[in-house]
Amino acid sequence: MKRFDQINMIPFIDIMLVLLAIVLTTASFISQGLIPVDLPKAEQSQQASPDEHSIEIAINAQNQIFFEGTPITADTLAEKLAPHAAHAAMMPVILRVDKAAAFEHFISVIDVLKAGHFDKLSIQTEQAQ
């Protein structure tokens, strides 16, 4: 009987690459925010993909502001952004605002971001049909 001195890893690598491709394609559909926000629709909408270096701020229909999923007030938003101030120019910020939210809260968040020099701002919308 022939003795096996090595294991053929190529089929294992093929299976893992297929699984990786499936995970990466489905991850973009799952990566919606945890805060329920009914986003406004826009014809020229492009999906911003959050990464580990981006900051996500959400405003729901009850005009509550959320920083990385944690409810905060407009006054404490500047305090939450302070640790990121050193990299403000390069730090991407994704803003998710419910279409029923008051425009005043949107402007107050934008004002705090501009004061902190967070210039890489993406406003998330849904693609209009």
Results as ranks from 00 to 15, higher is better:
Val97Leu: 08
Arg3Ala: 09
Ile110Asp: 03
Asp75Leu: 14
Phe118Arg: 14
Gln47Gly: 02
Ala89Gly: 01
Pro50Tyr: 06
Phe106His: 11
Ala82Phe: 07
Gln129Ala: 15
Gln129Tyr: 12
Leu19Ile: 09
Ile110Tyr: 00
Glu52Ser: 15
Asp75Asn: 13
Lys114Arg: 15
Leu77Phe: 01
Thr73Phe: 12
His117Tyr: 10
His53Ser: 15
Asp119Thr: 15
Glu68Ile: 06
Leu20Ser: 00
Ile22Ser: 08
Glu68Gln: 10
Phe106Ala: 05
Ala42Asn: 13
Asp38Pro: 13
Ser28Pro: 00
His117Phe: 12
Gln127Asp: 10
Arg96Gln: 09
Ser31Val: 06
Ala78Ser: 05
His105Gly: 07
Ala101Asn: 05
Ile22Tyr: 02
Ile110Cys: 08
Ala102Phe: 07
Ile35Ala: 01
Ala58Cys: 14
His84Ser: 12
Gln47Asn: 06
Gln129Lys: 15
Met1Gln: 06
Ile65Gly: 01
Asp51Arg: 14
Asp111Gln: 12
Gln47Arg: 11
Leu121Ser: 05
Ala86Pro: 02
Asp75Gln: 13
Gln44Phe: 14
Pro40Trp: 09
Leu77Tyr: 00
His87Thr: 08
Gln127His: 11
Gly116Val: 11
Gln6Thr: 05
Phe12Thr: 08
His87Leu: 15
Gly69Asn: 04
Met90Asp: 02
Pro92Asp: 07
Phe29Lys: 12
His84Trp: 12
Ile15Thr: 07
Glu79Lys: 02
Gln6Asp: 04
Arg3Glu: 02
Gln44Gly: 12
Ala61Pro: 00
Lys41Asn: 08
Lys41Ile: 09
Phe29Arg: 05
Ala128Leu: 11
His53Tyr: 11
Gly69Met: 02
Glu68Phe: 10
Lys80Phe: 03
Thr73Ser: 09
Ala89His: 07
His117Val: 14
Pro36Met: 11
Val37Ser: 05
Ala88Glu: 00
Lys80His: 05
Gln124Ser: 05
Val23Asn: 04
Ala27Ile: 07
Asp111Glu: 09
Ile13Met: 13
Gly33His: 09
Asp98Ser: 11
Phe4Ala: 06
Ile22Asn: 01
His117Glu: 10
Ala74Lys: 07
Ala42Thr: 12
Glu68Ala: 06
Ile59His: 00
Leu77Lys: 01
Leu113His: 01
Ile55Pro: 00
Val97Lys: 00
Ser108Gln: 08
Glu126Ile: 07
Asp14Thr: 14
Ile94Gly: 04
Ala115Gln: 13
Pro92Glu: 09
Asp51Ala: 08
Leu20Tyr: 05
Ala115Glu: 06
Thr125Arg: 06
Met91Tyr: 01
Leu95Asn: 04
Ile123Val: 10
Gln44Trp: 13
Gln127Cys: 08
Gln47His: 13
Thr70Val: 14
Val18Met: 08
Phe106Gly: 03
Thr25Val: 14
Leu95Glu: 05
Lys2Thr: 02
Lys2Cys: 04
Gly33Ile: 06
Met1His: 09
Phe12Leu: 14
Met1Ile: 14
Pro83His: 11
Thr25Met: 08
Gly33Tyr: 05
Ala85Trp: 04
Val93Trp: 03
Phe106Trp: 04
Leu20Cys: 03
Ala128Trp: 10
Ile35Leu: 04
Gln62Tyr: 03
Ile15Lys: 14
Ile94Asp: 03
Ile13Lys: 08
Lys80Ala: 03
Thr25Asn: 01
Glu43Tyr: 12
Ile65Met: 05
Gly33Met: 08
Leu19Thr: 02
Ser28His: 04
Gln44Pro: 02
Ile123Met: 03
Arg96Thr: 09
Gln129Met: 12
Thr70His: 04
Val18Phe: 06
Ala74Cys: 09
